[in-house]
């Protein structure tokens, strides 16, 4: 899998992807220019998480490494953090622990 282009904090893995990968910790107010637009981060985002590479419409398929990883639950603006709150599996619900250590969907 060829890594096609990279800035200091964001990694694009595949040209078909509509997400970018965070490769260095991001803090509110950080700015990254990539692919002709600038992302201004509004929250802390950890390494390995992903942000929208462009505006994504509700219901649209989300691609990483050129392969579908699920669908957008809502309209997602470019640069927004993408995770359980706005991205869902097309196969099986993701269970995880909430802050009270209870399994949630």
């Amino acid at each position: 899998m060829k890594i096609e282009g990279q800035t200091r904090k964001l990694l694009r893995i595949h040209r078909d992807d509509n997400v970018l990968i965070i490769v260095a910790p991001v803090r509110p107010g950080d700015r990254e220019a990539i692919e002709g637009f600038e992302i201004v981060f509004t929250q802390n985002i950890a390494v390995g998480h992903k942000v929208a590479a462009r505006d994504i419409k509700a219901g649209e398929k989300v691609y990483k490494c050129g392969l579908p990883i699920g669908s957008a639950k809502e309209n997602i603006p470019s640069g927004a953090h993408m995770h359980l709150h706005n991205l869902k599996s097309d196969y099986i619900a993701t269970y995880t622990l909430d802050k009270d250590h209870v399994f949630v969907k």
Binding site: G48, S89, T94
Partner: peptide, 10 residues
Amino acid sequence: AEGGLTTIEE
């Protein structure tokens, strides 16, 4: 999920 993975496909 804590590490940033959202779905089983991912």
